[in-house]
Amino acid sequence: MMTDSVLRDRFFKKYHGQEIENCIQCGMCSGSCPLAPHMDFGPRQLFAMAREGDMNEVLHANTIWLCVSCYNCVVKCPRGISITDHMYSLKKMATEVGIKPPKMLHLYRSFNAPVEKNGRLTDVMAMAGYGLRHPGAAMANVPLGLKMLSRKRLELKPASVKNIDGFQRVLKKAKELERVS
């Protein structure tokens, strides 16, 4: 396990998290956040913890995974902090330190896998991947799925870019660059 101070340093330097030092703890972000009531800590509190170095606690909080990217906090933050971007960074850091993957990470992986493979996505493909890990959720959505099917809304054929080789070479190179950085 990486120490709090190493993680804080990494967040501040590599992920440009230093900006959160400007926070005046007004709570505008948490009040604006659609899912804050369900978070372990609202963004305000999360940043208060992060800047004092409680990074392991921060990275294990559900907060970062409940950010819906609505940018409500960002446009209103009186200190101009890019809160949503910091949530993205913290999600990546949490994944790096190997937290137990929350549901949203499963969803993101189910989303990314077909994109990596085909370059494009259909809802069915993403749902199928996610449904394998969360059969309960999948079952609950069966009636809705059937309704969609009856309205010819489900795209069963996988979509793909044509120059798939080229696309995959690009992604491979991007992955290489990501590893070295």
Binding site: V161, L171, K175
Partner: peptide, 25 residues
């Protein structure tokens, strides 16, 4: 022609460079 998925929130949340490569392509 031959556009790909933009990656959206899913990539912003998981990848640092690929998240930019997808929309940039």
């Amino acid at each position: 022609q031959d556009w790909n998925c933009c990656g959206a929130t899913s990539y912003w949340s998981t990848q640092s460079i690929e998240a930019y490569v997808l929309p940039a392509r």
